[in-house]
Design a protein around this nucleic acid. Structure first.
Lengths: 133, 133
DNA sequence: GTATTTTTGCAAATTGTTCGCATTTGCTCG
DNA sequence: CGAGCAAATGCGAACAATTTGCAAAAATAC
């Protein structure tokens, strides 16, 4: 394991929300080239140390986000107000995926699911309850 | 409604699988510029006539795919062998989304879910059952 | 039919990501 | 411990999907 890959893996293992490639580069305090970060991420995902999904956000555009593959598979909510992620906890659609798999004869190797909207804070800020101010 | 937008909407309404921007341009036989196609898709999505999601595929890279917003909300499976989509039918995670929404105080305005792997055909082709040849 | 607003075409710019290639690093073995 | 080699990195250029500025063309309003 090279220095760059160790730093990249530490960045995503230590983050408590999905990180874009640039986010990883910022957190991984290896001063390595962005190409190296991309290659490291690709390597780590192939090796099973990381997972990724692509998300489009009004502020950051379309980017690929990486999360650690340690622990159970999880899903995320993306807030369109503060552009942060909220952890939705462990995956709850395993049963549904298995059902669809057998119903349709598919071999599912991965699934992507995420929600977006406004988190509790941004939601309260944009449409405060009566008497909240 | 302009000619270009009508053609773009007809393309996605008539397609039985999600279409990328270039796929829309190919199917919509308006010879309009690609910028127009992108703008029309953005407009149609904003106006509620189309939905989209971003998917990364080994053959086509990362692209945004559009589907008609007519009929019930659906989800898709993407085959990494033939790179086609399989319709998973109407959304079955509405309850889960509502649960997460109330559990975590979120305001969910959209959700993305798709599966990938090998479709029945590609699966059979790559690992035929005993006696299948 | 004319004025006003919106949309389109074209070409150039953006942006996330990938690639080629020479150099450096990590590891294996003697 | 140091030579030999395969794999990884840095740098810069290349890419591909998507967006944007602006003048011309088409909808729509009046």
């Amino acid at each position: 394991m090279t220095k760059a890959r160790i730093a990249v893996l530490a960045a995503i293992d230590g983050a408590e929300e999905p990180l874009s490639a640039s986010g990883v580069a910022a957190r991984a305090n290896c001063d390595c080239d962005q190409a190296t970060v991309y290659r490291a991420l690709h390597h780590l995902e192939t090796a099973g140390f990381a997972e990724s999904f692509v998300l489009n956000c009004s502020e950051h555009g379309t980017e690929r986000y990486y999360v650690s593959a340690k622990g159970p598979h999880r899903h995320w909510f993306h807030c369109e107000g503060c552009h942060r992620f909220v952890d939705l906890g462990a995956c709850r659609i395993g049963g549904l995926v298995a059902d669809l798999e057998s119903e349709l004869g598919l071999r599912v190797t991965r699934h992507t699911m995420y929600l977006s909207g406004l988190c509790a804070e941004c939601s309260a800020r944009s449409a405060p309850r009566a008497g909240a101010h």
